[in-house]
């Protein structure tokens, strides 16, 4: 009985705060994406025309985002039935976009206007095992092209 109460309150707390954090994060992502819109990202290695003289520098951004209790339970249930784990999709989406944004932010500080050869990598802290906190870690990196004056 006591366990059930703890479980339910964790679930509700997870849902409410998880939802709040998620919508706040998405809002901020959209906002910053708009601000950094002028920095273009590509993942080819070839230099765009006109950048032959530009200096290149490695830029990167990473982020670790954890899931909330509600998502954990929901994904666990989904694991019983199989199919698309929608609880984790937003998580990955957030992590991916946040990492790219942080990379762009670094490029902005360096005065770059384009990033080429962008790669996304996932670093792993926890594998999401039985008793571990599920989290997703994304690292985005690329070469920022800084036009020479």
């Amino acid at each position: 009985m006591f366990n059930l109460i703890i479980f339910l309150s964790l679930l509700i707390l997870g849902y409410v705060f998880g939802r709040m954090a998620e919508s706040r994060h998405f809002k901020s992502i959209l906002n910053r994406e708009e601000q950094l819109r002028d920095i273009l990202t590509f993942n080819e290695r070839t230099l765009p025309p006109g950048y032959e003289q530009a200096s290149g520098e490695l830029v990167g951004g990473n982020v670790v985002i954890s899931i909330d209790y509600f998502k954990q339970i929901s994904a666990g249930l989904r694991n019983l039935f199989g199919g698309r784990v929608s609880a984790y999709e937003t998580l990955i989406e957030r992590a991916r976009r946040e990492a790219i944004l942080r990379m762009k932010q670094e490029a902005r500080l360096k005065g770059a206007s384009k990033i080429i050869n962008v790669r996304l990598e996932t670093a792993s802290i926890s594998k999401g095992g039985q008793d571990q906190i599920g989290s997703v870690e994304v690292y985005a990196y690329g070469t920022a092209l800084i036009p020479t004056p």
Partner: peptide
């Protein structure tokens, strides 16, 4: 070279998490 705005909602399911949760 340009970066057009990509529409939202392609990479996430639009279903409400609670509905999905209770069905499961």
């Amino acid at each position: 070279y340009q970066n057009p705005k990509i529409p939202e909602g392609i990479n996430v399911s639009q279903e409400h998490p609670l509905k999905d949760f209770f069905i499961m």
